[in-house]
Measured scan of single mutants.
Amino acid sequence: KFNKELSVAGREIVTLPNLNDPQKKAFIFSLWDDPSQSANLLAEAKKLNDAQAPK
């Protein structure tokens, strides 16, 4: 279960257009550290992506 959630969340995070590479890497490392938090980490990444969207 975690492997699928981890890969789905990881793929989504790397495609978020408004995150820079260090931010993406930080989220990916957090996913590896605790795969059970993949849904929460993906939600946080999406929030940050939205907040950094060009206005």
Results as ranks from 00 to 15, higher is better:
residue 1 K to N: 12
residue 1 K to W: 15
residue 28 I to G: 03
residue 38 S to T: 13
residue 16 L to P: 01
residue 6 L to C: 15
residue 49 N to V: 02
residue 6 L to P: 04
residue 51 A to L: 12
residue 51 A to S: 13
residue 7 S to A: 12
residue 10 G to T: 15
residue 17 P to N: 05
residue 36 S to E: 08
residue 25 K to H: 10
residue 20 N to P: 03
residue 47 K to R: 13
residue 55 K to P: 11
residue 28 I to P: 00
residue 45 A to W: 00
residue 11 R to T: 10
residue 41 L to G: 02
residue 8 V to H: 11
residue 29 F to S: 14
residue 11 R to D: 06
residue 41 L to Y: 03
residue 9 A to R: 04
residue 28 I to Y: 03
residue 5 E to Q: 08
residue 45 A to M: 00
residue 24 K to E: 01
residue 54 P to D: 08
residue 29 F to Y: 10
residue 3 N to P: 12
residue 2 F to N: 09
residue 24 K to L: 02
residue 53 A to S: 11
residue 52 Q to C: 10
residue 23 Q to S: 02
residue 11 R to S: 07
residue 16 L to F: 05
residue 25 K to T: 10
residue 37 Q to N: 12
residue 40 N to A: 13
residue 1 K to I: 14
residue 24 K to N: 03
residue 13 I to Y: 00
residue 41 L to I: 14
residue 19 L to T: 01
residue 2 F to D: 10
residue 42 L to N: 02
residue 19 L to S: 02
residue 7 S to E: 14
residue 6 L to G: 04
residue 38 S to I: 15
residue 8 V to T: 10
residue 20 N to H: 07
residue 37 Q to K: 09
residue 13 I to G: 00
residue 48 L to D: 02
residue 7 S to F: 14
residue 5 E to D: 10
residue 48 L to P: 01
residue 44 E to M: 09
residue 49 N to D: 04
residue 9 A to Q: 05
residue 52 Q to S: 04
residue 46 K to R: 13
residue 22 P to T: 15
residue 54 P to W: 03
residue 21 D to F: 10
residue 22 P to E: 15
residue 38 S to A: 14
residue 36 S to A: 07
residue 49 N to L: 02
residue 55 K to E: 10
residue 27 F to V: 00
residue 11 R to I: 12
residue 6 L to H: 04
residue 35 P to Y: 03
residue 50 D to K: 08
residue 16 L to S: 02
residue 4 K to H: 12
residue 5 E to A: 11
residue 27 F to N: 01
residue 34 D to T: 05
residue 50 D to E: 13
residue 39 A to N: 08
residue 39 A to V: 09
residue 36 S to F: 06
residue 5 E to V: 10
residue 42 L to H: 02
residue 16 L to V: 01
residue 53 A to Y: 05
residue 43 A to H: 05
residue 24 K to Q: 00
residue 54 P to F: 05
residue 37 Q to Y: 04
residue 21 D to G: 13
residue 49 N to Q: 00
residue 46 K to D: 01
residue 41 L to R: 01
residue 15 T to W: 10
residue 37 Q to F: 03
residue 7 S to Q: 13
residue 32 W to K: 02
residue 12 E to D: 06
residue 18 N to V: 00
residue 44 E to W: 06
residue 20 N to D: 09
residue 39 A to C: 09
residue 28 I to V: 04
residue 19 L to F: 00
residue 54 P to G: 09
residue 14 V to M: 14
residue 52 Q to W: 04
residue 39 A to D: 10
residue 32 W to N: 06
residue 8 V to E: 12
residue 14 V to G: 06
residue 19 L to R: 00
residue 26 A to T: 07
residue 49 N to P: 00
residue 13 I to N: 01
residue 31 L to P: 03
residue 35 P to H: 02
residue 30 S to K: 13
residue 40 N to D: 09
residue 49 N to T: 01
residue 13 I to C: 04
residue 43 A to I: 09
residue 2 F to C: 15
residue 10 G to L: 15
residue 48 L to S: 01
residue 26 A to I: 09
residue 43 A to K: 09
residue 10 G to R: 12
residue 28 I to W: 05
residue 52 Q to I: 04
residue 44 E to I: 09
residue 29 F to W: 11
residue 44 E to R: 05
residue 10 G to P: 02
residue 39 A to H: 13
residue 52 Q to T: 03
residue 8 V to R: 13
residue 6 L to D: 05
residue 51 A to C: 12
residue 51 A to Y: 11
residue 36 S to L: 07
residue 15 T to L: 14
residue 43 A to D: 08
residue 44 E to H: 04
residue 3 N to V: 11
residue 38 S to C: 14
residue 45 A to T: 01
residue 54 P to R: 07
residue 46 K to Q: 08
residue 46 K to G: 03
residue 22 P to V: 15
residue 41 L to W: 02
residue 42 L to T: 03
residue 16 L to A: 01
residue 49 N to M: 02
residue 4 K to R: 08
residue 4 K to M: 10
residue 35 P to G: 03
residue 21 D to Y: 12
residue 55 K to I: 11
residue 37 Q to D: 07
residue 4 K to P: 14
residue 18 N to A: 04
residue 53 A to C: 07
residue 3 N to M: 13
residue 22 P to R: 14
residue 8 V to L: 12
residue 23 Q to E: 03
residue 27 F to H: 00
residue 17 P to G: 05
residue 10 G to E: 15
residue 20 N to L: 10
residue 14 V to Q: 12
residue 12 E to W: 11
residue 30 S to P: 06
residue 45 A to R: 00
residue 48 L to E: 02
residue 43 A to C: 09
residue 37 Q to E: 10
residue 43 A to M: 08
residue 16 L to C: 05
residue 31 L to C: 09
residue 26 A to F: 13
residue 5 E to W: 09
residue 11 R to L: 13
residue 44 E to S: 06
residue 46 K to I: 11
residue 45 A to I: 02
residue 21 D to H: 08
residue 3 N to Y: 14
residue 18 N to M: 03
residue 22 P to K: 14
residue 55 K to C: 12
residue 48 L to A: 03
residue 25 K to F: 12
residue 51 A to Q: 10
residue 22 P to L: 14
residue 34 D to S: 04
residue 31 L to A: 03
residue 45 A to L: 02
residue 47 K to T: 07
residue 22 P to S: 15
residue 30 S to I: 10
residue 51 A to F: 09
residue 8 V to G: 08
residue 51 A to N: 06
residue 15 T to N: 14
residue 11 R to W: 15
residue 31 L to V: 04
residue 12 E to Y: 13
residue 20 N to V: 04
residue 16 L to N: 00
residue 54 P to T: 08
residue 33 D to C: 15
residue 55 K to A: 10
residue 12 E to G: 04
residue 37 Q to L: 07
residue 25 K to E: 14
residue 30 S to T: 08
residue 42 L to P: 01
residue 48 L to R: 03
residue 17 P to R: 07
residue 4 K to W: 11
residue 6 L to T: 08
residue 13 I to E: 02
residue 54 P to C: 12
residue 21 D to P: 09
residue 5 E to L: 11
residue 17 P to W: 00
residue 1 K to R: 14
residue 29 F to N: 14
residue 17 P to T: 08
residue 40 N to Q: 13
residue 28 I to F: 03
residue 7 S to P: 06
residue 46 K to M: 07
residue 35 P to V: 04
residue 29 F to H: 14
residue 51 A to D: 09
residue 24 K to Y: 01
residue 7 S to L: 15
residue 24 K to D: 02
residue 15 T to I: 07
residue 2 F to Y: 11
residue 43 A to L: 09
residue 8 V to C: 12
residue 11 R to K: 09
residue 23 Q to C: 06
residue 22 P to A: 14
residue 52 Q to G: 04
residue 50 D to F: 06
residue 25 K to Y: 12
